[in-house]
């Protein structure tokens, strides 16, 4: 039979590892021979730690980056805490990429609003780095990035945030839930950044990723601005145990998030009662 074992990971090298915050760690991963992962922005991989287990993790780099790919992992449990202890030169198991991400071809010529709450920035960064790449930037209209974090201490990719802020072909707005010393910017949840946006309603798409609670409010706010459901894209997180449409854990009603998602056009899932 041609079918092969779909659960056996490929062994990959951690070529760089960097603590980003108290909980989040950055990884640069090289597949055997430096082969490209071949993902699209928004897709994920299943990452294995020897002797511990496996967890679904978003690819955070753009497919335009060659030779290795990047991830950022928040340490919350078994696998992710074990990952935090690894060092450059250690090995991980990788399966994937899985699911469906953002089809950037469909976004060409359009204004793109990216709305990232907390660790939701990690998968969206693969989209951001694709559309702001100097060779690609002109394919798209405005690029607007809204980023919300609990406090400034939890900011991810600090150097990149500064670059986005300084580039005049990117409109970058950031807010924190809680002011800590040294913060002079916006304070408030991410939805507070939406009312002031001036959007070309016919030519804009929005991509949203954040904690489960965030979607409802952000979508309400974007709709009240006049964006239509099919102009909204969401990346959803669910429990996942296989990544290949078998284990059942990721199901939203009849849809397998690991197969059809994690990125969905909102119009497609709007009627699914368990989605948002």
């Amino acid at each position: 039979m041609e079918a092969k074992n779909i659960y056996v990971p490929e062994v990959a090298d951690i070529i760089r590892i960097e603590r980003m915050t108290e909980l989040e760690t950055f990884y640069d991963i090289k597949l055997p021979g430096g082969r490209d992962l071949g993902h699209e922005p928004g897709q994920f991989v299943e990452v294995s730690v020897f002797g511990i287990g496996e967890a679904p993790i978003s690819v955070s780099s753009s497919h335009l980056k060659k030779g290795s790919f990047e991830m950022v992992v928040r340490s919350v449990g078994n696998v992710t805490q074990a990952m935090q202890k690894l060092k450059a030169g250690d090995k991980l198991g990788i399966r994937g990429p899985f699911g469906h991400g953002f089809k950037t071809k469909d976004f060409e010529g359009k204004d793109i609003v990216i709305i990232a709450g907390g660790i939701g920035l990690v998968p969206l960064r693969s989209l951001i780095n694709t559309i702001i790449d100097p060779a690609e930037r002109k394919k798209y209209g405005r690029v607007i990035i809204l980023y919300g974090s609990k406090t400034k201490e939890e900011f991810l990719f600090r150097n990149e945030l500064e670059t986005w802020e300084s580039r005049n072909d990117i409109e970058y707005h950031v807010t924190v839930d809680r002011k800590t010393s040294g913060w002079n910017g916006n304070v408030g949840v991410i939805t507070t950044l939406i009312p002031d946006l001036k959007l070309d309603l016919h030519n804009t798409i929005a991509a949203v990723c954040g904690p489960p609670i965030m979607y409802k409010f952000v979508i309400l706010s974007l709709r009240s601005k006049g964006l239509k459901d099919n102009q909204l894209y969401v990346s959803l997180e669910r429990k996942m145990k296989c990544g290949v449409g078998k284990c059942g854990h990721c199901q939203i009603n009849n849809i397998y998030v690991c197969q059809e998602g994690p990125v969905f056009n909102y119009a497609y899932i709007e009627d699914l009662k368990e989605a948002i």
Binding site: A3, K4, I6, Y7, Q259
Partner: peptide
């Protein structure tokens, strides 16, 4: 969909 050889 994805064929599962472990079962098949």
């Amino acid at each position: 969909g994805v064929k599962d050889a472990t079962y098949l």
